[in-house]
Design a protein around this nucleic acid. Structure first.
Length: 866
DNA sequence: TTGTTAACTTAGAACTTCCCTA
DNA sequence: TAGGGAAGTTCTAAGTTAACAA
């Protein structure tokens, strides 16, 4: 494997977003980050495939031949004599030129014979050797019939996800989790205040809340402090049945966005240079686009095409009043609308802070009742209680549907999930809910189906809620459980890398990538989605082999973020990928015998509840813990500790390929930093020269010369001019202020000559500086001893070093998003424990939101390890 | 066995607030 | 004290997973 990302040569780790191929999400955790080198190849493992397997049995397939060659594809690796020579060539290390051998498909009879020879593997082979389907077809477009259905009788969804943890309950000793399973949501809760100000009783000891969670007026009003008391779900009985998520649930539904507010009559878009008056319906959609004309979306042909097509449909029903026919996108000028939106933004921005506060309060008051719900009698925060407003679909990457119109969601679209006894909320816009259901095995409060991809939208509780917290904690516990299985699992897949069955060998190789590179599982995607891949859906074009043992990954992953990584792999992996790619087209699947389902099924057999995703969590958290532990921070300052933490965080983010777009002002701020950096070096140079001026016996300290090579004469002229201008400006301002002060005190102000005198002195100083240019001797202000000057030089050198580090840090981190791993992959207990060990306040590392999200992690002691 | 889908987590973009510097 | 940039928060798209229907 390659070195850690941060240590890679530049060409191997240049990063960039999306279309600009640069980001190199090198893991390196097998050597650099993780430090674990697995099973070094033994003599036996080095044995060419040709000696282990009859080479002629090697697979050959082409995408176009999938159908007719299916049975051929089922041939186990070791069973096709017809391809012996080709396989021998593949198997020879370094025999790259011989990897692609044209050969005809083996005959059925040969295949049959081969299968007979493989009697031992027959069963396995039959079960696993299935071809993967090509990209899924587009989902059914028209779901309107569903939408037009009358209010359905409340019924629970046909299918439901069964919790994995259920199966874990009966896990045998061998697979015992490291830590007692957390969870259990139905333990006694602290009293909470209901919306009306009454209190709900705590649920009964068995976890079931009193019917409907209501116990009005039974108890005295408690103080605010007590009401705010947190329900410590993580302290309660872990053996509760977690297929049931709640006993009682009360909420106020969702809040719909306000109706469309028409533009002032004077604001009109233009068509073919002339103003057009649009009816509300078409004006609203035009406005969606107008707001984006300065964004990248408006530069995208697909986005524009989809928007225009959808808008034309609206226009047909609601044409411009001038009876102009809008048929050409190019003739549309949305600028007047855009300008109006901008002016409105500016107007809102310019409001006084009191006015802004008032507006915010009105909004908060209006939303207040939707922000929380009563779950088993306890008040819990709701996450996305606002219904998504209509707009243009902002699909990422090359999503074929980006720009299409996302319809306004109405009550008729929404199904509520609520307790049986709870009052049904009334929508804040005209209409009736699509359906009401009382399913306590799911956690959502409301759902609807979006019109573009027919994807389901849900309203869930907030990240800080007990339900989310429990699930989060279980996620990390599952990842920790992997710790005690991972050696065995790795040994198993390392063994399978040489399996005679293609499916097993592919699966083992995929597992290797998932484990070492933290790749996602990679489900198949449909034609109506962006073409992105993960491990199982990698195509041949996404992996390039480079002798002797490098693999270059280059593909678009989730959110169309580019994954580029040049990785040094073990010989067997290299060999396998060569075999998998052989005789396939670029757009053929690399792992044609592996699906996410089959892979996860296998992982589950290795450890209960294990999926590809668990590996990502495990590797992120384990790597983070190890990196933190590697630091010696005994005498470190707070800043040094924070730097060490952020560095570990950054390495994990790189491992997981978490990118962000470069801040728009990045180049500008880097340039500022560079100027400041040079300025510091200039200051040191002057001190050095000054030191020599004071005492020529002092060394000129030429060790800094190279470091100061970017300070050339031209730059110095420019810099000193800037300095001079700044100093004069400063002096002028100071002079004005002094006079103002004097005027206030009724004292005669200073004359202009005072300022002129000061400026004259400054100019003399700068003239002296100009004379010293190009010389190695300079004057030093004040009566400084050489020792004092030396001291200043050392201090400056430290500042220069630290500033340089800051610059490098800023530049290298410009495309790395730290938040994603912190929120989703790093066990918060690692941070909590680390903070305690190093006496770092948690708020330095966890924002308020993160602290609310992870209350369950805060109690760990300093001994706790992931 | 395979495809579909419900339910959930993970993700970067977009927006908002905070804080530092001039 | 403004305003610019960073940090924090919200929004919603895009994944994963497993149950279930065909």
């Amino acid at each position: 494997m390659s070195t850690a990302f941060g240590l890679l040569p530049k060409q191997d780790r240049t990063m960039s977003n999306k279309t600009n191929p640069k980001f190199t999400g090198i893991n390196g955790h097998a050597n650099g980050l993780n430090g674990k080198a697995y099973s070094p190849l033994s003599e036996d493992e080095e044995m060419p495939l040709s000696q282990t397997l009859p080479p002629s049995r090697r697979l050959k397939r082409k995408k176009t031949n999938y159908a007719e060659s299916s049975s051929e594809d089922d041939t186990p690796l070791a069973s096709s004599p017809a391809k012996q020579s080709a396989s021998a060539a593949i198997a020879m290390p370094g025999a790259a030129a011989a990897t692609t051998v044209q050969s005809s498909l083996a005959s059925k009879s040969k295949r049959h014979a081969a299968k007979k020879e493989e009697s031992d593997d027959e069963q396995v082979f039959k079960k696993s050797e299935k071809k993967k389907p090509a990209r899924k077809k587009a989902k059914k477009e028209d779901q309107s019939s569903e939408d037009d259905k009358p209010l359905a009788t409340p019924k629970p969804p046909a299918r439901k996800r069964k919790l994995k943890e259920e199966s874990d309950n009966d896990s045998s000793g061998e697979d015992e989790p490291l830590v007692t399973k957390p969870s259990a949501r139905k333990a006694p809760a602290k009293k909470v205040k209901t919306e009306e100000g009454t209190e709900s009783p705590a649920p009964k000891a068995n976890g079931k809340a009193e019917e409907n969670g209501k116990g009005k007026g039974r108890r005295k009003k408690k103080t605010e402090e007590e009401e705010e008391e947190v329900y410590r779900w993580w302290d309660v009985d872990p053996n509760a049945d977690d297929s049931v998520k709640w006993s009682t649930l009360e909420h106020n539904g969702v809040i719909f966005p306000p109706p469309y507010e028409p533009l002032p009559a004077r604001v009109k878009m233009k068509y073919d240079g002339k103003e057009v008056t649009l009816p509300l319906e078409s004006e609203e959609v035009a406005g969606f686009y107008a707001a984006l004309i300065e964004s990248d979306h408006a530069k995208d042909a697909t986005f524009n095409k989809n928007f225009f097509n959808d808008w034309k449909v609206i226009l047909k029903k609601h044409p411009p009043r001038e009876s102009v026919k809008i048929t050409s996108f190019e003739k549309c000028d949305f600028r007047p609308m855009f300008d109006y939106f901008e002016s409105e933004k500016a107007r809102k921005k310019s409001l006084s802070s009191a006015e802004k506060k008032e507006l915010k309060k009105a909004k908060d008051d209006m939303e207040a009742k939707y922000t929380s719900c009563l779950l088993d009698g306890r008040k819990e925060k709701v996450g996305n209680f606002r219904v998504e407003p209509p707009g243009l679909f902002r699909g990422r990457g090359e999503h074929p549907k980006k720009g299409t119109l996302k319809h306004r969601v109405r009550p008729e679209d929404i199904t509520l999930n609520i307790g049986k006894e709870a009052p049904i909320p009334i929508p804040n816009m005209p209409g009736k809910w699509k359906a009401i259901q009382h399913d306590n095995t799911v956690t959502w409060l409301a759902t609807w189906t979006e019109n573009i991809n027919q994807s389901h939208k849900y309203v869930f509780l907030a990240a800080g809620s007990s339900l989310k917290g429990q699930s989060d904690m279980m996620k990390f516990e599952k990842a920790r459980e992997l710790k005690s299985h991972v050696d065995r699992i790795r040994a198993n897949y390392n063994g399978d890398l040489r399996s005679k069955l293609m499916a097993e060998r592919q699966r083992a190789t995929a597992m290797y990538f998932i484990d070492k590179l933290a790749l996602r599982a990679g489900n198949e995607k449909g034609e109506d989605e962006a073409d992105t891949v993960g491990c199982c859906s990698l195509r041949c074009e996404h992996v390039t082999l480079e002798l002797p043992n490098f693999i270059i990954f280059d593909f678009l992953g989730k959110d169309s973020i580019r994954y580029y990584n040049r990785v040094q792999v073990e010989a067997q992996i290299f060999k396998n990928v060569r075999i998998f790619k052989d005789n396939k087209e670029d757009d053929d699947s690399l792992f044609d015998r592996v699906t996410t389902t089959s892979l996860n099924k296998h992982l589950n057999s290795e450890m209960k509840g294990l999926t590809a995703k668990v590996f990502r969590t495990y590797n992120a958290s384990a790597t983070f813990q190890r990196l933190l532990d590697e630091n010696d921070l005994k005498n470190a300052t707070l800043q040094e500790k924070l730097n060490a933490y952020n560095k570990a965080n950054r390495l994990v983010a790189i491992l997981c390929n978490h990118q962000r777009s470069v801040p728009k002002t990045h180049d500008q701020s880097m340039e500022k930093m560079r100027q400041k950096y040079r300025g510091l070096k200039y200051d040191r140079m002057k001190l050095r020269h000054g030191l020599f001026g004071i005492d020529s016996n002092y060394k000129r300290m030429d060790q800094y010369k190279d470091d100061e090579s970017d300070i050339d004469d031209d730059w110095i002229v420019e810099y000193e001019d800037q300095l001079k201008a700044k100093e004069i400006e400063k002096a002028e301002k100071k002079f004005v202020k002094e006079n103002e002060k004097l005027a206030e005190d009724n004292i005669k102000p200073q004359g202009e000559s005072v300022l002129q005198e000061r400026i004259k002195h400054m100019e003399e100083d700068f003239k002296r500086l100009a004379k010293e240019r190009g010389k190695t001797v300079a004057s030093v202000k004040g009566n400084k001893t050489p020792e004092k000057v030396m001291e200043s030089i050392d201090k400056l050198t430290d500042r220069i070093k630290s500033f340089k580090l800051q610059m490098v840090d800023r530049d290298e981190g410009k495309e790395v998003a730290l938040g994603t791993s912190k929120i989703n992959y790093l066990d918060p207990r690692i941070t909590a424990s680390w903070c305690k060990i190093h006496d770092v306040p948690i708020e330095k590392l966890f924002s308020k939101t993160l602290q609310v999200k992870f209350p369950w992690a805060m109690d760990v002691d300093t001994e706790w390890k992931f």
